[in-house]
Computed example of a mutant assay.
Amino acid sequence: MKNFALIGAAGYIAPRHLRAIKDTNNNLVAALDKFDSVGVMDSYFPKADFFVEFERFDRYIEKIKRQQGVQLDYVSICTPNYLHDSHIRMALRRGADAICEKPLVLNPWNLEALQAIEKESENKVNTILQLRLHPSIIALKKKVDSESKKGKYDVDLTYIASRGNWYDVSWKGDESKSGGIATNIGIHFYDMLSWVFGEVQENIVHLREKDKSAGYLEFEKARVRWFLSIDENSLPIEVKEKQQRTYRSITVDGDEIEFSGGFTELHTESYKGILKGRGFGLVDAKSSIEIVHGIRNAELVNFGEKHYFVR
């Protein structure tokens, strides 16, 4: 049984981490969040200590190590994107491995700094790249790896996750904290694309607004037209008629890849791999972080292959 701490216990994604810790038969020692709406912990670890101030949380971790011999093995990080870097560093300083939600960091150079600290600490930084564990995506990668296709695959990626007015008020609406739309809701797709289709060769951005973004990515084995949005007005008519607020589609050479189900279980699968030493680390996260950094800083252009929602 390994000892865990959780930073960001009141967030949307925290219950998946709580469940993963419990389902892998491990122990949550302490949790931290500046918000105290964390009753969900009762369903998983009601005896875990909880803190709303980082200083008291940090002191407690030190105290139980010195007085009770309780050493943290892992720190799970579910905080806002811009805090990930700092909280990963805290985990490594405490002699624990980090398990951090994506994106690990907002900028490629932050990865380089973490690599140096990881090496000094002899602990490991893990990230959650759950699409790499999805059966449909694994099947797609096996197909791409085994085929000797002439030319490149044509891929269309569309992801619309409608969000209310709260989004702009929260940290997610602040690009300096979230990294913007492409980073906040798209980074796991970019990781999946680079994992399946190889190195990025071209990164063109056609649209970049606060609530939507679109562009073209060329990989070694694929040409990808992508569109991301949190604006419900972007939803196709047939989706609106069903009163659905989310639309997710990936087509490869015109064939739809079905991957809508099974997401909630993939965090537990991620933890199982991490606990066996097979987690995804800093090197694995590099490509997607470089992609979103490029999207965030690229000059908008009006040429090249555009997603059909933009056309």
Results as ranks from 00 to 15, higher is better:
residue 2 K to N: 08
residue 2 K to A: 02
residue 3 N to Y: 03
residue 4 F to V: 00
residue 5 A to K: 00
residue 5 A to S: 07
residue 7 I to Y: 00
residue 9 A to G: 02
residue 9 A to W: 00
residue 13 I to V: 14
residue 17 H to C: 00
residue 18 L to H: 00
residue 19 R to L: 10
residue 20 A to W: 00
residue 21 I to H: 01
residue 22 K to H: 12
residue 24 T to V: 04
residue 26 N to K: 09
residue 27 N to K: 14
residue 32 L to A: 03
residue 34 K to P: 13
residue 35 F to N: 14
residue 38 V to C: 12
residue 42 D to M: 09
residue 43 S to V: 01
residue 45 F to T: 04
residue 47 K to W: 12
residue 48 A to K: 00
residue 49 D to H: 13
residue 51 F to Q: 01
residue 52 V to K: 12
residue 53 E to Y: 09
residue 53 E to H: 13
residue 53 E to N: 11
residue 54 F to N: 03
residue 58 D to R: 08
residue 58 D to L: 07
residue 62 E to D: 15
residue 66 R to Y: 11
residue 68 Q to K: 15
residue 71 Q to M: 14
residue 73 D to E: 12
residue 74 Y to Q: 09
residue 77 I to M: 11
residue 78 C to W: 07
residue 79 T to C: 13
residue 81 N to D: 15
residue 83 L to I: 12
residue 87 H to W: 11
residue 88 I to P: 05
residue 95 G to W: 06
residue 95 G to N: 06
residue 101 E to W: 10
residue 102 K to A: 06
residue 108 P to K: 07
residue 108 P to W: 08
residue 109 W to A: 14
residue 114 L to H: 07
residue 115 Q to Y: 11
residue 116 A to Y: 05
residue 117 I to C: 02
residue 118 E to S: 11
residue 120 E to S: 11
residue 123 N to A: 08
residue 125 V to E: 02
residue 126 N to I: 03
residue 127 T to A: 04
residue 129 L to K: 03
residue 131 L to I: 04
residue 132 R to V: 02
residue 133 L to P: 00
residue 134 H to G: 00
residue 136 S to L: 03
residue 137 I to Y: 08
residue 139 A to P: 01
residue 141 K to S: 03
residue 141 K to R: 11
residue 146 S to T: 09
residue 150 K to F: 10
residue 159 Y to P: 06
residue 159 Y to K: 13
residue 162 S to N: 06
residue 173 G to Q: 05
residue 174 D to T: 12
residue 176 S to N: 14
residue 177 K to C: 04
residue 177 K to D: 04
residue 181 I to F: 04
residue 181 I to G: 06
residue 181 I to Y: 01
residue 182 A to Y: 10
residue 185 I to A: 11
residue 185 I to G: 06
residue 187 I to Y: 01
residue 192 M to I: 07
residue 196 V to F: 00
residue 197 F to G: 03
residue 198 G to Y: 03
residue 203 N to A: 13
residue 203 N to T: 10
residue 215 G to S: 11
residue 221 K to S: 08
residue 228 L to P: 04
residue 230 I to N: 06
residue 232 E to A: 12
residue 233 N to V: 09
residue 234 S to N: 11
residue 241 E to Y: 09
residue 241 E to S: 11
residue 242 K to D: 08
residue 244 Q to L: 14
residue 245 R to N: 15
residue 245 R to I: 13
residue 246 T to V: 15
residue 249 S to P: 08
residue 251 T to V: 13
residue 251 T to I: 08
residue 254 G to F: 07
residue 262 G to V: 07
residue 264 T to I: 15
residue 265 E to A: 13
residue 267 H to F: 15
residue 268 T to D: 05
residue 269 E to W: 13
residue 271 Y to T: 10
residue 272 K to A: 04
residue 280 F to M: 14
residue 289 I to D: 03
residue 293 H to R: 05
residue 296 R to P: 01
residue 297 N to M: 07
residue 299 E to G: 11
residue 300 L to F: 03
residue 305 E to A: 07
residue 306 K to D: 01
residue 306 K to T: 01
residue 307 H to L: 04
residue 310 V to G: 02
residue 311 R to I: 11
